[in-house]
Nucleic acid binder design. Structure first.
Lengths: 224, 224
DNA sequence: CGATCCTTTGAAGGACGTCAAGGTCTGTGG
DNA sequence: CCACAGACCTTGACGTCCTTCAAAGGATCG
């Protein structure tokens, strides 16, 4: 269910969306804001829009009938999410923190893609990037140990963060559900990495992390 | 490395490949055969061809540096695999049993896709199908128990098999590496499902399986 | 500054992995 | 056709890594 907090219409281009079509500047972007924890769309809902994170963070997850949750991806500033080829969303998307998104109608994108090969090509390469991420995550979930998973997660977040210290928007529970672990195991793994000098906390919160030794962090990744 | 055993050139159409382009009948399909266990292509090798299983079965997997293996998918008769958007394969593909494949040059496919919107669309929907499979597998690997995983695997194979009894081409090791388990755990889960009347072995081999109660099998899947 | 949520840490339990042994199936060669 | 070798599968005993349960220490927000 879409919780509309702000609906200021902002005439804009879709270039920011990365579809690379400079020729369709007429499409307007809408800006929405979601409070922490609110749902952006639900699994199996019709996929009418494509989203881009303007500020904040989003989690995409699937639930099992008994409440077990698997987060498939986190979407950070600049990321596009909710792009479907079929007409249903395959994940539920929620704002991890207060989040602003841009969104465009999927329909308009598909109309463009039908004639513009560049846009069509970009749709494919975005889907491929998602596939690639999922494939790597399969290996993590199927074959890596707890410490390896946490190290891989931190390496991924570090890679996606420009600043020197990361401010993780998601809770230990989110991290655990992303890595197929429990919060306690995540906490223990982080503690261990901290003891071994890989990272340290910054300030007076456990979500601000600085990587002290990237090479040492890398050494925990058995991939490649 | 491609191990060419048979290279009879067969003039053919690419319709069988399911790209839905009746207008490009000039492209020839090559038929290759791979012996049991031989590599079809390796991870990070240039992706020059797209493959379709004509007979047999193929496993796609990634290896960790210490030999841990995660199988991402099994490709059975009719399945297309090795379709990449980038120019490298992201998995290693091996013949599970003696396998015959058709293959076409990726280049020719890409040339067609650039002008033919139908082919381009099919490339996208095939990639999306792969993505969807990977996403469901994430949930299995991250959040399902051993019995749930094996039940889901059997349900998947059952769904993809037309015959009443399945003849699994892959070993317990393959199944284990697909499900993120060990062979012993897979064996125990199968035994348990057999005790509970979900399935039974057929003939004098443990790879011929008949599902006795599909509804009971379904009941082991906590998804949806 | 109190209430609540989140995180950490310890202790105990359990599901799956490891190790080991024996049974089954398959292919090969006598 | 049988004998043997080797690979594969099953089953049991035991170990271990992760989970569960519990409690206490931060962090956040009113």
């Amino acid at each position: 269910m879409l919780v509309r907090i702000s609906d200021r219409r902002k005439p804009n281009t879709i270039d920011d969306f990365g579809f690379g079509s400079a020729s369709h500047k007429t499409i307007s972007l809408m800006e929405f804001r979601y409070r922490k924890g609110t749902e952006i769309y639900g699994e199996k809902e019709p996929a009418d829009h494509v989203y881009q994170v303007k500020r904040g963070a989003v989690r995409s997850y699937k639930l099992l009938s008994d409440g077990r949750r698997q987060i498939g991806a986190f979407h950070l500033t600049g990321d596009i999410f909710g792009l479907e080829t079929g007409d249903q969303h395959r994940f539920t998307a929620e704002a991890v923190v207060e989040t602003t998104v841009h969104l465009i109608k999927r329909e308009s994108l598909q109309v463009i893609a039908a004639t513009d090969a560049v846009v069509a090509r970009n749709l494919l390469s975005m889907t491929t990037r998602n596939l690639e991420h999922a494939e790597n995550h399969l290996v993590l979930l199927g074959r890596k140990t707890a410490v390896e998973r946490v190290a891989a997660f931190l390496a991924e977040m570090d890679r996606r963060t420009e600043a020197h210290t990361m401010s993780l928007p998601m809770s230990r529970r989110d991290i655990a559900d992303y890595l197929g672990l429990t919060i306690e195991t995540v906490s223990r793994a982080v503690s261990r990495l901290r003891c071994e000098g890989v990272l340290n906390f910054v300030g007076n919160t456990q979500r601000e992390i600085v990587i002290l030794d990237r090479q040492l962090l890398q050494s925990f990744d058995p991939q490649n």
